[in-house]
């Protein structure tokens, strides 16, 4: 029976084509440096999953944010593990995405026809930083509170539109419940949606163009 189900699905999806195009693509001679993109993708999925699980207990309100995280760390079974992975995964993701970017730059992989992949990659890097910035506030402890005061204050120094930007980020002139709520919204809905969309195009382009050769001495 399983075989029939598989055949029915295969006829409509075409597993062989998928396998050949996604996993069995021809590759140039590669090194571990070529795995950083996949590693970033893995971390994105990991952060998504652990993040979803964290929202089961986390409450984005000044009254409860700190206590709910405390509860995750000490009250819930394996809460420390889920939050630990999310916490350290976030740091690792920023580092990996950045090294991935450096690798593409140093091997000149951003050149024709891959400029668009590179530009979208810049968007992905900025969105990753955005995830780090918004996620940092959510525990609502002293460190995250003042880090966000400073971070949004820096945005406020931009000429002409600075004050407006600061108010948009904070949801008003001061840090408040509105700030926490909109950072939470950005962290779990807006930026992940942007990330997912950009990753989709990024991957499509990579599969379309294939990996680039590393330049040789003649190049």
């Amino acid at each position: 029976m399983w075989k029939n189900i598989y055949l029915w699905l295969d006829e409509r999806i075409g597993f062989n084509d998928l396998y050949a195009n996604l996993l069995d693509r021809p590759e140039p001679k590669t090194t571990w440096w070529n795995t950083l993109g996949s590693a970033s993708l893995f971390l994105f999925v990991m952060q998504g999953l652990t993040g979803i699980f964290l929202t089961v207990y986390y409450t984005p309100s000044p009254d409860h944010a700190y206590d709910s995280i405390n509860y995750i760390m000490e009250g819930v079974a394996f809460g420390w593990l889920i939050r630990g992975i999310h916490h350290w995964g976030a740091t690792l993701m920023v580092i990996l995405v950045f090294i991935h970017m450096l690798r593409v730059f140093y091997t000149a992989s951003f050149k024709y026809p891959r400029e668009l992949t590179w530009l979208i990659g810049i968007g992905l890097f900025l969105a990753t930083l955005g995830m780090g910035f918004t996620g940092y506030l959510l525990p609502w402890n002293q460190k995250s509170y003042w880090a966000t005061v400073v971070g949004t204050q820096i945005a406020g120094t931009v000429p002409f539109i600075g004050e407006f930007t600061l108010k948009v980020l904070r949801g008003g002139p001061e840090l408040s419940a509105l700030t926490l709520q909109r950072f939470f919204s950005a962290h779990i809905w807006i930026i992940p949606a942007v990330l997912a969309a950009l990753i989709g195009v990024h991957l499509f382009l990579i599969i379309k163009h294939g990996e680039s050769h590393f330049p040789t001495k003649e190049d």
């Binding site: 699980f53 819930v76 079974a77 394996f78 809460g79 593990l81």
Partner: peptide, 15 residues
């Protein structure tokens, strides 16, 4: 390693 603790994490209040 991730999945099993996660199940426990989710159902913990019911236990």
């Amino acid at each position: 390693v991730i999945g099993l603790p996660t199940v426990y994490y989710l159902i913990d209040p019911a236990l």
